[in-house]
C-alpha cells in the first residue's frame, strides 16, 4: 500500500530526512520510535503533504500513485489520515461543520452523494460512542480550549469518521490518561481491518501493549537505523536508545 524509497527532505535548508525506506502492507501496524528531534513528525508531515518541507530526493508510492504528486486534500481523500502530534485550535469553526465538510468532500471524490443531516448525525453518534467522546466537546469550536487529551481524542474521533486506509498517529498516546489511552487504543483496534494500515509514532511501549505492532522501527537522524518485531520496543523500553545510536553513529562515521 505504501512504499517509501530513499526519501529525503529538508526544512529551511536543513536536512531532516536522510533516506527513509519503509514498506507498509494492508492490514499491518508499524510502530516508529526514536529520540526527540529524529524526524518522526517530519516524516508524518511529509506523507500528509505539508508544504513547508522540501523533498530532496526519493519517492513515495501509495496505492499505486505517486503520493508526493498529490495535494494534502487529495491525499486525505485517497485515505491518508494524519493524527497530529499538536492539533491546531481553530476558533470559530465548529467541529461538526468541519467534519461534515471534510466527509462530504471525501465522499464526493469517490463519487458518493453527500450525507444528509440525519445520516450525518447518526454516523457521528455511532463514532462518538466508539471513542467515548462527549457531545459537548464537539459542539465547540474545533479544538479551541480543548485539553491536550481532548485534542488527541478528537483526532481519533475524526479518524473514526473518515475511515482512512492509511492512518498515521503521531504520538496520539502522549498526554492521555490511562483510561483515555485504553479507549483510544480500543477505538484504533476496532477500526482495524485487513485492508487498512496504521503507522504509530510513539515514545512508549505502553501503547504497544494495547495496539500490537507487526513491525517496530527506530528512526534516528532522519534514517531508519533498526527494524524488528514488537520485542524491539520492549528492548528499547529497557535499554533506551544509546546502544542503537552508537551502532548507527559508528557505521556512518
Amino acid at each position: 500500500m505504501l512504499k517509501i524509497k530513499n526519501l529525503k527532505a529538508s526544512v529551511e535548508g536543513k536536512m531532516i530526512l536522510n533516506g527513509i525506506n519503509l514498506e507498509v502492507k494492508p492490514g499491518e501496524v508499524h510502530a516508529i520510535m526514536g529520540p526527540n528531534g529524529s524526524g518522526k513528525s517530519t516524516l508524518a508531515s511529509v506523507l500528509a503533504g505539508r508544504e513547508d518541507y522540501q523533498i530532496e530526493g526519493g519517492e513515495v508510492e501509495y496505492i499505486g500513485k505517486d503520493l508526493l504528486d498529490l495535494s494534502p486534500e487529495e491525499r486525505a481523500r485517497e485515505g491518508v489520515f494524519l493524527a497530529f502530534q499538536y492539533p491546531v485550535e481553530i476558533p470559530g469553526v465548529s467541529t461538526t461543520n468541519f467534519l461534515k465538510a471534510a466527509l462530504n468532500q471525501v465522499r464526493e471524490h469517490h463519487g458518493k452523494p453527500a450525507l444528509d443531516a440525519v445520516s450525518f448525525l447518526k454516523l457521528m453518534k455511532e463514532k462518538m460512542a466508539l471513542v467515548e467522546i462527549d457531545q459537548a466537546l464537539l459542539s465547540r469550536s474545533l479544538n479551541e480550549g480543548f485539553s491536550g487529551g481532548e485534542k488527541k481524542r478528537n483526532e481519533i474521533f475524526q479518524m473514526a469518521m473518515l475511515e482512512p486506509k492509511l492512518a498515521i498517529l503521531d504520538e496520539t498516546d502522549s498526554g492521555l490518561d490511562i483510561d483515555a489511552l485504553r479507549i483510544v487504543a480500543n477505538g484504533v483496534n476496532k477500526l482495524k481491518t485487513r485492508d487498512n494500515a496504521t503507522i504509530l509514532i510513539t515514545h512508549y511501549q505502553r501503547l504497544l501493549d494495547y495496539i500490537v505492532p507487526d513491525f517496530v522501527h527506530v528512526l534516528y537522524k532522519g534514517r531508519i537505523i533498526k527494524s524488528g518485531d514488537k520485542s524491539l520496543a520492549l528492548q528499547l523500553e529497557e535499554k533506551g536508545y544509546d546502544w542503537i545510536k552508537e551502532e548507527a553513529d559508528t557505521v556512518s562515521a
Binding site: 505539508r50 495535494s71 486525505a76
Partner: peptide, 18 residues
Amino acid sequence: QLFYLRARGISEDKARAM
C-alpha cells in the same frame, strides 16, 4: 490551520473560506 483542514480532505479554497 489551513493545513489541518486540507489534511482532512477539504479543498484549499473551501478551507480558506471556512
